[in-house]
Design a protein around this nucleic acid. Structure first.
Lengths: 213, 213
DNA sequence: GTCTATACGTTGATAGAC
DNA sequence: GTCTATCAACGTATAGAC
């Protein structure tokens, strides 16, 4: 029996499945070693494919890296969009911090790829940061200022507050290994993580003068 | 005139000066590219020396990396030691947070080397984390619990509080580039940085129910 | 679409003249 | 103590058979 021509549908399925596997593997390897430190061979091994296939689907390492960053970015922004201009700042902050903590739990590698990209000087994310993220920050800053004006929260520096939220929530992804070691070598259970999330929410709310649920 | 034999003192001076230059260069290159991504040739160029000299003074890249980490560690612990068991938690937290912010300002590269090491799974720092740092954490946890028992601060999870302090203060070093871009491309002046430090202190104090200076 | 073989640049480390 | 020359190992990317 000779090879029959595969249907276009089947081809597309294969492509999508392989691209997804490679992207997932790449996110992990870039997270652990950074862009320069990541070898396409490592990514291929992690994905369970020959090295040549990685280059077949993504051409260059740089292209693959940009794709990974784009995916992380989309999910990061998706969590960011939960910060809304609600009347109740406690509710808004609680929702946002929880979404960021969930992102850290579900995409720890993605968070680290982001962190490493920034620590390398943000060569690829530079444009995103100075446009999309800057606009986002300006809008949320306005919301926070309004809450302060209306006497709903303490007078705090909005940037300092948002940086604290980002830093604290992302710490649970980026420094996961340190947290595990300090926890006696055991990873946080889903239950413990939910409690930590609640604690982080309470600390953030307290920092702007909003007390206990 | 032939070369006279240099005095041992002179030789030691040269060695110390060169080692210092290489260590400083290495801290920067490891911070920007991570361990695997850092090339000894880049470190040599940054230090203004031929590549062979780097290996003459430090033998292997791994040895050099460990030296850099040790230096960062010492300075990190030096800041950590400012967290004392004072009667006044506001004073203790203010001093500690300020010291950590100062560390981020003065040693941004060192902070990033630490971060990257943890994100790579802490292969070298593992031992330090599970001994020295764990002990430190246990002691400070006890102090915080005592403050809570004495009704001096709100009942918060001590680990969550300390992680928030670490994350927030280190964010100003590790994500410096992001902060600069969001600040319109301008680095924070010494004055702005002092104000941010004060804001961070206020946010942290607020998070445990301690209000205003 | 898959994968072995390979071209070719880069990197860690050393040898050996000065 | 300094530095050029060198090399083996590794890394990205591609060619070309299947």
């Amino acid at each position: 029996m000779t090879l029959s021509t595969p249907t276009p549908v089947r081809k597309i399925e294969i492509r999508e499945a392989n691209e997804a596997r490679i992207l997932e593997a790449a996110e992990k390897v870039f997270a652990l070693n950074g862009y320069k430190g990541a070898a396409t061979g490592d990514i291929a091994r992690e994905a369970g494919l020959p090295k040549a296939n990685v280059h077949y689907y993504f051409k260059t390492k740089s292209d693959l890296y940009r794709e990974v960053l784009t995916h992380v970015l989309n999910d990061w922004m998706s969590a960011a969009s939960t910060f809304e201009a609600l009347d109740d700042p406690a509710e808004a902050l609680r929702t946002y911090v929880s979404a960021k903590m969930e992102f850290s739990r579900k995409r720890p590698y993605g968070s680290r790829v982001w962190a490493r990209e920034i620590m390398s000087g943000a060569p690829v994310l530079d444009n995103f940061l100075s446009t999309t993220l800057k606009t986002w920050l300006k809008q949320r800053t306005r919301i926070i200022r309004r809450w302060i004006r209306e006497g709903k929260i303490k007078a705090v520096d909005p940037h300092a507050l948002l940086y604290m939220i980002w830093a604290t929530t992302q710490h649970y992804a980026d420094f996961e290994q340190q947290i595990i070691i300090l926890n006696g070598g055991k990873a946080l259970s889903d239950r413990s993580y939910r409690q930590k999330t609640e604690q982080v929410v309470e600390l953030i709310l307290g920092s702007v003068g909003l007390n206990g649920s």
